[in-house]
Write a protein that binds this DNA or RNA. Structure first.
Lengths: 244, 244
DNA sequence: ACAAAAGTGTTTGCCGTACACCCATGT
DNA sequence: ACATGGGTGTACGGCAAACACTTTTGT
């Protein structure tokens, strides 16, 4: 399988990614399930090449897992408790998988490398869920979108990492105008509002929400969208990057 | 001198501290000057023990340099560019100090350790400047408070680190109610306002500032302060930690 | 005609800014 | 009396919340 060494990667330092997507009025997170007995889930993660900027390392990890470039990405916090080691998890995993690991068996040196105490840099990413084709790597059994309110049990402190990522997302949402990264190119005001509601987990008043968003002057109103529903057709909007 | 090894510290990972103080209407930063020819300044920094939480490592570094515990401290960003190595600086320093390093000479192994590419976690701290007795370590020629608008030339990307720390301080000042960490136990409204003005580098309207701060309901008004000046005596205030 | 959802307008209260005025103190 | 700086009150304007009404569309 893969081989880690200090020649290639910075030791004891990793990157954990919280990849947010939005689908069916729910905020979701992309989480791989590891291909071992025992039902282990873990956030997409990776290491930093000796000659690689940390932001680019995060970008590389994201591209591998989502298949797309040009992802909105933000560093949000470092997790550096003393208990942060894969050792308990890996030992349990190996005891549950005796003799079944085959080519996935870690050699002694690799085991030593990955079971040391790790400090991890947390990044969160916002993607248009329709553009993403989740990619398993050779350690994964599967990789899926889970509603943030219904995440599978994850290893180590990964639940806390998601929690902090969501906190940061809420703080930055209006500030940095990044909600649009979670939506398709065009969208209705209702869709945007439902996205906000799923992120903040509370309702917004419809008319006031519209006024607030339009006052930001970052949306372009397009033609109306024909829905076939028994009501007025809503306008479509597009996010203006840096145009007038 | 000191000896680093992977047995003791996490390699290639460091902590850089921006220690803010306030004195004579100026926001200041505590910066040591290295005890070598060539005038090198560098932010207080250190490494993380293998069995040490990163926040506690930052706290340890701060305690050593300031002599006080119970310091307000916040992680704000990771600096992880590929160019982040002490090598250019150390080589220049050594060429300027040939034969004069004496006991400060790094042995081969130590030189290899400290000149690798480093990822650094930035922390900022707020201290009551009157309580601090800056402590040199055995690498320092001196350690002093410099006005943030008049910092000495610092090595590597330390200017950028201060810049980002100040940005974060501004963002968090009202949010987290932390300005009081820069002042003595008691202070006048004018002193607090001048502190705000030095941080944001802009004036505030006197009466409105007072109203805004008092509306936060985190200050206790004490007796008046006798100044001897030809005007009304100002009230003293104290910050309420978590009392009613 | 009616229900459903979209679009828009009006009122209210809060908050920050600007302006104005009084108070205490030493010269 | 006056200058100096401290404390407080009032008026204005913008913004967000709450309430209300109109428009479009398929059944």
């Amino acid at each position: 399988m893969y081989s880690h060494s200090e020649q290639d990667y910075i030791p004891q330092l990793s990157i954990d990614c919280v990849i947010f997507g939005y689908q069916e009025t729910q905020l979701k997170v992309l989480v791989p399930k590891l291909d071992f007995r025992g039902d282990f889930w873990a956030l997409p993660a990776g290491f930093i090449l000796q000659d690689e900027d940390i932001d680019l390392a995060a970008r590389r990890i994201l591209e591998v897992r989502t298949g797309i470039k040009d992802i909105y990405l933000d560093q949000f916090r470092v997790f550096g408790g003393t208990g942060r080691s894969n050792r308990p998890f890996l030992e349990r995993m190996m005891s549950l998988n005796e003799g079944k690991l085959g080519s996935k068996m870690l050699n002694r040196k690799e085991f030593e490398w990955v079971t040391r105490r790790f400090v991890s840099i947390g990044y969160y990413a916002l993607v248009d869920i329709n553009k993403v084709v989740p990619q398993k790597n050779d350690m994964d059994e599967s990789i899926d979108w889970y509603p943030i309110k219904d995440l599978p049990p994850m290893i180590m402190d990964h639940h806390e990492i998601v929690e902090k990522a969501l906190e940061t997302l809420r703080l930055n949402l209006d500030q940095k105008l990044i909600a649009f990264n979670l939506l398709p190119e065009t969208f209705t005001m209702r869709e945007l509002q439902e996205l906000y509601e799923s992120i903040f987990d509370k309702p917004f008043a419809r008319n006031n929400f519209q006024k607030k968003i339009l006052n930001l002057n970052v949306l372009e109103r397009l033609e109306k969208k024909f829905t076939g529903a028994a009501n007025k057709a809503p306008y479509l909007y597009r996010f203006l990057n840096a145009k007038g």
